[in-house]
Amino acid sequence: MAQHVAGPEIERLIQLLARLPGLGPRSARRAALHLIKKRETLLNPLSDAMRIANERIVVCSTCGNVDTSDPCTVCRDPKRDPSILVVVEDVSDLWALERSGAVSAKYHVLGGVLSPLDGIRPEHLNLERLVARASESGVNEVILALNATVDGQTTAHYITELLAHLPVKVTKLAHGVPVGGELDYLDEGTLSAAIRQRTSF
């Protein structure tokens, strides 16, 4: 039987860290030990930052982003193109697009994708608000920036049907050869998508 070598407070810290994505019990133990060793420079500031984040962070009632204000910084930005609405699965996807600087538009976070196996149905997603926003005057295009998974593509098709009655153009991200990618290293699905979505040179 495994012996606990740390007090209950440290065990609790390890258990909570182990719940984070990408961290298992072993990684959580290492992270906890590192935090404890660097108590003054890391654990205390992290604890303060987490307390402040817990007190101040809200979900934007317009787009679903997380921020310290509602509407969020993105929704309040007057430089963004209000005619384009970019639909993403999660806040992490919104952040990824923002880091890329590829688009300066408004966003809409679904909060997931349709997944019959996981019991996620249309009523579990932020779809009603999406239809309302796409119906607003001035919105000309809805970009479906969803992951190239079966569930992501199923959700994209569902949204396309949902918005079919509106006078907006519905587009999706191109899938294919990544910049700097070598054909020999790509999977068959990516290569097939790249061939199907080829463009003039």
Rank of each mutant, 00 (worst) to 15 (best):
A28R: 03
E55Q: 14
R39W: 04
G111W: 08
N126I: 04
E98Y: 04
R121P: 00
L13R: 09
P21Y: 08
L20W: 13
K38Y: 08
V103N: 00
H34A: 15
A49K: 02
V91M: 05
L16H: 13
V113D: 03
P25W: 05
G138Y: 11
T73R: 14
D81A: 12
T68R: 09
R80T: 07
L20E: 12
V66Q: 13
L16G: 01
G101R: 08
S104R: 15
G138P: 01
H34K: 08
H108V: 00
S100M: 12
N140T: 09
P45V: 07
A105W: 05
S69K: 11
A132C: 02
P21Q: 10
K37T: 12
R26G: 06
E128Q: 15
H108I: 03
E128Y: 02
A6C: 10
V88S: 02
V103W: 00
L110M: 05
H124Q: 12
G24Y: 11
A96I: 07
E98V: 01
G111D: 11
G101T: 10
S27C: 11
P25I: 02
N54V: 07
S115D: 09
G111H: 11
S115E: 03
K79D: 12
L35A: 10
L130F: 06
S104N: 15
A105M: 01
V113R: 00
G111E: 12
L127Y: 05
S47C: 10
E89F: 00
H108A: 04
R26M: 12
E141I: 07
N126T: 07
V139K: 10
S104T: 12
L97K: 00
L23M: 13
R80V: 06
L97D: 03
E98S: 02
D48T: 14
E128A: 13
A105I: 00
V66D: 01
I120D: 01
V86K: 00
G7W: 09
S47V: 06
V59N: 00
E141P: 03
S137R: 15
E55P: 00
H34R: 13
L110S: 00
E123D: 15
Y107R: 07
V113S: 13
L23T: 05
R80E: 08
C75T: 03
L97C: 04
D90Q: 12
H108E: 03
V139M: 07
L16T: 09
R129T: 12
P8W: 14
V139G: 04
K106L: 13
T62E: 11
R129C: 03
